[in-house]
Simulated scan of single mutants.
Amino acid sequence: MTTTEYTVTGMTCGHCEMSVREEVSEVDGVTEVAVSHETGRLTVTSEGPLDDAAVLAAVDEAGYTASRA
């Protein structure tokens, strides 16, 4: 298992967290997603190496901006 941390900007509430969680959960290989609007952190656990571009695109699709922490 691999855990990768990201910083997400623009989230302000639980609904924001849910939107990011739903989009990132659909990325191939992702097994667990934890997100907090309070800290601006996204933690993604995957079966192996994670496609950063796919995670960043998923966060963008949810309406927010992310970068690798």
Rank of each mutant, 00 (worst) to 15 (best):
D52N: 15
V44L: 04
L50K: 00
A54G: 08
T31W: 10
L50T: 08
G29T: 15
L56V: 11
M11Q: 03
A34P: 02
A66D: 02
L56T: 10
A53R: 04
A69V: 13
C16G: 05
S36M: 07
R68W: 06
T12R: 02
E23Q: 15
T3Q: 15
H37T: 11
V27H: 03
M11R: 03
A54S: 14
G63E: 12
L56D: 05
G14L: 11
V24L: 08
G40K: 01
E26I: 03
T65R: 02
C13N: 06
S36P: 07
V55P: 05
M18G: 10
T39W: 05
V8E: 00
S36F: 06
A54Y: 05
T43K: 01
V35W: 01
A34Y: 07
Y6R: 01
E38K: 14
D51R: 09
G10Q: 06
R21L: 09
A69E: 12
T9I: 09
G14S: 10
Y64T: 13
M11N: 02
E5C: 09
G10I: 09
G14D: 11
D60Q: 13
T3Y: 07
V20M: 07
T65E: 14
R68G: 07
E22R: 03
A57S: 15
A66Y: 01
V27I: 15
G63K: 08
V27E: 11
M1D: 04
M18S: 14
V8Q: 00
P49F: 10
Y64P: 11
T9P: 06
S25E: 13
V33S: 05
V30C: 07
V20P: 01
V35M: 07
E38D: 14
G10L: 10
L50C: 06
L42H: 00
M18W: 04
V35I: 12
V35E: 01
A57M: 13
T12I: 07
V20T: 01
V20R: 00
D28A: 15
E22P: 02
L50F: 05
V27G: 09
H37F: 15
G63Y: 08
A66G: 15
V30L: 09
T3G: 06
M11H: 01
L42F: 00
E38L: 10
A66H: 01
T7Y: 01
E26K: 13
V30W: 05
R68V: 15
A58R: 00
L56S: 03
S36V: 06
G10P: 12
R21V: 08
L42T: 00
G14Q: 14
T2F: 13
G40T: 04
C16I: 10
A57R: 12
S67T: 12
V35K: 01
D60V: 05
E26T: 10
C16W: 00
G48V: 06
A57K: 08
E26M: 08
T43H: 02
S46D: 06
V35N: 01
A62S: 04
V20W: 00
T43M: 09
T7N: 03
G63H: 04
T9N: 09
T43L: 14
E26R: 15
G63M: 10
T2L: 13
T2V: 15
R21Y: 05
T12G: 02
V24F: 12
S25A: 11
T4Q: 11
T2C: 13
